[in-house]
């Protein structure tokens, strides 16, 4: 059995007409990309649309792909751009009802909040809610770090931000999530 091809090799093979290479590559990246998009937009329909659009952009630009760039970085960069565009089109994100709900929760005593009695399952639910409450840049940096395992440089390459900016976004995201989970 031969050595498995890297994502970059598979992408180059697909660019040269190998359909099976794409199938292999897609199988590797589909879950990570979908979760990243879904947890970035918190809307399944939008996530499906962005997910399909991400792959469509990748397929359309397959001949321009160069192996110097890491494939996952390239893929996530496409998804990131689409997510940012979707945020810009969807502003303001929070409607009056959603804002009112957040304020009401903030005002209620902690003992009365239902999350106080949550188990681990409820801890995951709380994390999800905390992620949704993060600013998009901080959430995206956190997701790229946790979901894709990217470092500061890679996150910066994807998001177009500098090293310190990425580190700062991660710091703020980490603090808010920690606070939410420790509450």
């Amino acid at each position: 059995m031969g050595v498995a091809k890297t994502d970059e090799e598979l992408m180059l093979a697909y660019a040269q007409g190998d359909v099976r290479a794409f199938d292999t590559l897609y199988g590797r990246q589909r879950g990570m990309l979908y979760r990243f998009i879904l947890r970035s937009v918190a809307d399944r329909a939008s996530a499906d649309e962005l997910y399909q659009e991400t792959w469509s952009r990748l397929i359309a630009s397959r001949t321009r792909y160069r192996a110097e760039a890491k494939f996952s970085t390239w893929l996530l960069q496409i998804a990131h751009n689409l997510i940012v565009d979707s945020f810009r089109r969807a502003r303001p994100q929070a409607g009056p009802e959603e804002t009112e709900t957040v304020l009401r929760e903030l005002d209620a005593p902690e003992s009365e909040r239902p999350e106080q009695t949550l188990s681990e399952f409820e801890q995951r639910r709380r994390l999800q809610l905390a992620l949704e409450g993060l600013p998009s840049e901080q959430r995206e940096a956190f997701l790229l770090r946790v979901e894709s395992g990217l470092g500061l440089e890679e996150i910066g390459a994807i998001t177009g931000a500098g090293h310190e900016t990425v580190k700062s976004r991660l710091r703020y995201a980490f603090a808010k999530l920690r606070e939410k989970l420790n509450e």
């Binding site: 499906d48 995951r124 994390l127």
Partner: peptide, 11 residues
């Protein structure tokens, strides 16, 4: 660790 316990949603 808590994040990795989230449901592994897939397309």
């Amino acid at each position: 660790a808590l994040y990795r316990k989230l449901p592994p949603v897939e397309p």
